[in-house]
Nucleic acid binder design. Structure first.
Length: 331
DNA sequence: CATACAACCCGCCAAA
DNA sequence: GTTTTGGCGGGTTGTA
C-alpha cells in the first residue's frame, strides 16, 4: 500500500473493516461540508473516536493525515471550479471550497498543483499532467504487477489532449439522452486508487456476491457505480469509486458496507458497452466530445454509471453494459 | 488512550 | 481591482 511510518500497525482484518466504514463516513462528511470548518475534533466526533486515535487510524489506512485530506479535497474542488466557472473570481472560488483567505489558497494551491490558481485557470496545467504521470509511475514501480496499467493509463492521459479531432467525429454519432433522476439511498463499497485498475472489477464481484446474499439483487433494486473524482485533477491513486445498490430505510450499514445518498438531478446519459478498460475513454467522449456543444455545463454532483437492476458480465470477454450519466445544468 | 511540545500552517497586513 | 508574494504571531497539528 502507501508508504507508512514504520511505527504504525495496520489493524487486523475484521477490525479493519469497521475502521474503513468510519473513514468512508468521514470522507463523505468532508466532501459534503467542505465550506464549513473541518478540524480534527469535529471529524473525530463524526467517526466516534477520540481525536488522537482517529488521526492515527486514518493515517495508517489512507496514507495521509486528516488535515492533508481536507486540504486536498478543498484544492481539488477549487481546481474544478476554476475551470468550470470562469466568471467567478478566484477569491470566491477559494471561499466556496472552504479556504479562510485568498492568500492561503494561492499558497497551498501552488504547493499542490505547481502553478498558481490564475495560471491553472488559463489552462497552463500541463505541468500537472506530467506530475500525475510521474506519480503514477512511482506508484507502480513499487508494484510490478501493474505494468500494464501504467501503459494504458499513460496512453489515456495523452489521448485526451492530443487528439481532439477524433472525438469530434464521434461526438456527432454519440447518442445522449437528458434524464432527471431522483436521489437514491444506496449501500456502497468503496475503492480508492486509480481508475481502470482491475481491482475495481474485483471489488464489483465481491460487492455483487455480498449484495446477492442480502437479497438486494432481485430485479427491483437499482445498481450504480459512482466516480467520486476527476482523474485529470485528483492525484493518481487517490481517485474514489463506489459500487452501489439501492436500499430502503431499514438497511443498516455493516462492516465495510456503508450507506449514502447519491444525489439526483439532471444528467446527460449515454449507453456504454465494453470492458472496464474502455469505460474511461467513454467518459472522456461524453465530457469533452458531447458536453462542450450541448448547451449545458457540468454540475458539481457525482458522475454515475447505472447498471439497471442486475449486472451481466460476459465471462468470455469481460464486456458489460451500462449507462454513463454526467451531471449537468443549463448554461 | 493522554499529555506535552516543537513544527507547521493558517489568517492577517502590506505591497508588488 | 484582482492575483500573488513576503513576513509575522498565534493556534493547530503531528508525534514522541
Amino acid at each position: 500500500m502507501e508508504s507508512q511510518p514504520a511505527s504504525y500497525q495496520v489493524p487486523t482484518e475484521p477490525r479493519k473493516m469497521g475502521y474503513v466504514a468510519s473513514i468512508n463516513r468521514v470522507i463523505d462528511y468532508i466532501d459534503a461540508n467542505l465550506s464549513e470548518s473541518l478540524d480534527l475534533q469535529k471529524l473525530a466526533q463524526v467517526a466516534h473516536f477520540s481525536p488522537w486515535h482517529f488521526h492515527r487510524i486514518f493515517l495508517a489506512l489512507t496514507g495521509e493525515t486528516l488535515a492533508d485530506c481536507v486540504r486536498r479535497r478543498r484544492l481539488e474542488k477549487a481546481a474544478r471550479s476554476l475551470l468550470m466557472v470562469p466568471a467567478v473570481t478566484a477569491k470566491s472560488v477559494a471561499f466556496d471550497a472552504g479556504f479562510g483567505s485568498a492568500e492561503v489558497f494561492v499558497r497551498t494551491f501552488k504547493a499542490h498543483f505547481g502553478v498558481t490558481p490564475g495560471r491553472w485557470r488559463l489552462g497552463a496545467n500541463s505541468g500537472w499532467a506530467d506530475q500525475r504521470r510521474s506519480h503514477l509511475r512511482n506508484l507502480h514501480q513499487q508494484d510490478r504487477r501493474h505494468d500494464q496499467l501504467i501503459r494504458t493509463a499513460v496512453v489515456h492521459d495523452g489521448s485526451m489532449r492530443l487528439n481532439p479531432s477524433r472525438s469530434d467525429e464521434r461526438a456527432a454519432s454519440m447518442d445522449v439522452a437528458l434524464k432527471t433522476m431522483s436521489d437514491v439511498r444506496v449501500a456502497y463499497m468503496r475503492y480508492t486508487g486509480t481508475y481502470g485498475d482491475p481491482k475495481i472489477t474485483r471489488m464489483w464481484q465481491r460487492f455483487a456476491s455480498l449484495a446477492a446474499r442480502n437479497g438486494l439483487i432481485d430485479g427491483k433494486h437499482m445498481i450504480l457505480g459512482v466516480s467520486r473524482d476527476d482523474p485529470d485533477i485528483a492525484l493518481a491513486g487517490r481517485c474514489g469509486y463506489d459500487a452501489c445498490v439501492e436500499v430502503d430505510r431499514s438497511f443498516k450499514p455493516a462492516g465495510e458496507i456503508g450507506v449514502q445518498v447519491v444525489r439526483g438531478g439532471l444528467f446527460g446519459c449515454t449507453p456504454f458497452r465494453g470492458t472496464a478498460k474502455d469505460i474511461y475513454e467513454a467518459w472522456l467522449q461524453l465530457f469533452s466530445g458531447w458536453l462542450p456543444d450541448s448547451g449545458f455545463q457540468p454540475d458539481d454532483r457525482l458522475a454515475i454509471e447505472t447498471y439497471g437492476t442486475g449486472i451481466e458480465v460476459d465471462p468470455e470477454t469481460g464486456r458489460f453494459a451500462c449507462e454513463l450519466c454526467l451531471p449537468i445544468r443549463p448554461l
